[in-house]
Amino acid sequence: MKKTIFVVALSIAGFIAVWRFEPGPVHNTSAIAQAPPASVTAPSTSAPPPTAAPATSATPSSPPRTSTSDSADTTVTTRGSAESSRYGTVQVQVTFTGTRFTAITLLQAPDSGRSLTALPRLQEEAMQAQSADIDTVTGATETSESYKTSLQAAIDARGNR
């Protein structure tokens, strides 16, 4: 009997542990990948909690004001195209300060499957690369392509201004 109680207690503990396990990126999924200067005007989505920032901390922490290549520090927000695949629709909105992205917001995104982990990675890669020329995330090829196309469209839209 004592053994049974012990086993049951152990099982419940194990079950709770498994139940509460939160996989890495998925729960940090920030719909917005944001660079430190938070002077963003556009996002309709609420800003992510500060704890989500480390995910994008690889972006230069120095404010764009100090960057030399830039002539105008104006903040511009453009929208990318809505790209659909069978896994859902991806559409981004990019906030530029000068020519740098300071935020990429997901206006539309699939809410399930492999895309869940793929999108945060794509966001991070795009912020680092400061371009749409990024690697496809494995296992989410179509979502990655949608993301890149939409992002490129947003960048093009900025260029046309």
Binding site: W19, F21, P23, G24, P25, V26, T117
Partner: peptide
């Protein structure tokens, strides 16, 4: 997958 996707660990268990 187990580390990054919701529910994979649960499925494995």
């Amino acid at each position: 997958m187990a580390n990054q996707l919701e529910g994979i660990l649960r499925a494995l268990v």
